[in-house]
């Protein structure tokens, strides 16, 4: 276990270094995943390129379409961000259950995404927002949808030397809300047994679903969007029946494993329960019945 640590001062320098060192290099920001993986012998990079202090990559900006989150934004920043306390509260709810404060003070959203853990808590809410990632690299800049970016457990479409530079998503339509639910064995410091995010838009009367977007984590090799469940809600009356049906369809779409944390059977059951709950919570929020 040994490597060189590099501290580039600009994005261009970081990308150049990554290009120079090739597959033996890893970017590191908060390091809360990378250092543990190195210590456990899961990865053995020869070069770590510290991007944690690169200018312009941290913070949350309102844009014409919605929001751009810098990849170096910490969870604690997301959690406390005023603009996310309303309809986008799934972002706050997911950020608030990643590790303890010590991790959330330094772990970055970008790191959580590129780490591509199937149980990453922050990925499902972003999936329901149809987030896209801006990526810089030796071959130039590109933009990719988050749902196309994560390709398997620990796998992404990130090429050698490429770096996420922004996470962007559009504002929600009127009469919309989001919600995030997670189950684990404890009430904190948990890797999700299952987590679910929902984004729901109702019609002006607040009774009928216009559209719904769902994402499920820790119930398959990657966080997934259960499309049949989402489609089942369109045009339906918002309520227990349609939400429960969506939960059942989402459970059918999931492909969880059994491990020391939970059985596949229990995970599938939780997907159904949490999808129903997340949709219910969204509807309550739209009605102003709950924060």
């Amino acid at each position: 276990m040994s490597f060189d640590l590099h501290r580039p001062s600009s994005l261009a320098e970081a990308v150049a270094l990554a290009g120079l060192f090739g597959p033996g290099a890893r970017f590191i920001a908060g390091g809360t995943d990378v250092v543990i993986q190195i210590n456990r012998g899961k990865i053995a990079p020869a070069h770590l390129i510290d991007i944690s202090l690169l200018p312009g990559l941290a913070g949350i900006a309102a844009t014409a379409e919605g929001y751009a989150i810098g990849p170096l934004t910490t969870y604690r920043t997301i959690e406390r961000h005023a603009a996310f306390q309303g309809p986008l509260s799934a972002l706050v709810e997911a950020a608030a259950v990643v590790g303890g404060h010590q991790v959330r003070n330094i772990a970055t959203v970008g790191g959580n995404i590129v780490n591509a853990s199937p149980a990453a808590d922050f990925v499902p809410p972003l999936l329901t927002l149809d987030a896209v990632l801006d990526i810089a690299g030796p071959q130039g800049d590109r933009t990719v949808a988050l749902r196309d970016f994560i390709t398997g457990p620990g796998k992404t479409s990130l090429g050698a030397g490429e770096l996420v530079t922004a996470i962007r998503f559009a504002r929600l339509a009127a009469n919309s809300a989001t919600a995030f639910f997670k189950e684990g064995r404890r009430k904190a410091m948990e890797i999700s047994v299952v987590c679910v995010a929902a984004s729901l838009t109702l019609d002006a009367s607040g009774t009928r679903c216009v559209s719904a977007r769902l994402a499920v984590g820790a119930a398959g090799p990657t966080a997934l969007r259960p499309e049949r469940a989402e489609a089942s809600l369109a045009g339906q009356a918002a309520g227990l029946t349609s939400f429960r049906d969506a939960g059942r369809l989402a459970a059918e779409a999931s492909s969880p494993i059994s491990d020391v944390r939970a059985s596949a059977d229990h995970r599938r059951h939780l997907v159904a329960v949490l999808v129903e709950r997340a949709l219910t919570r969204c509807a309550e929020r739209i009605a102003g019945a709950r924060p």
């Binding site: 404890r186 009430k187 904190a188 020391v260």
Partner: peptide, 9 residues
């Protein structure tokens, strides 16, 4: 994965 109670539990 060895789960001792936290302050929230």
């Amino acid at each position: 994965d060895y789960k001792m109670p936290t302050a929230l539990d």
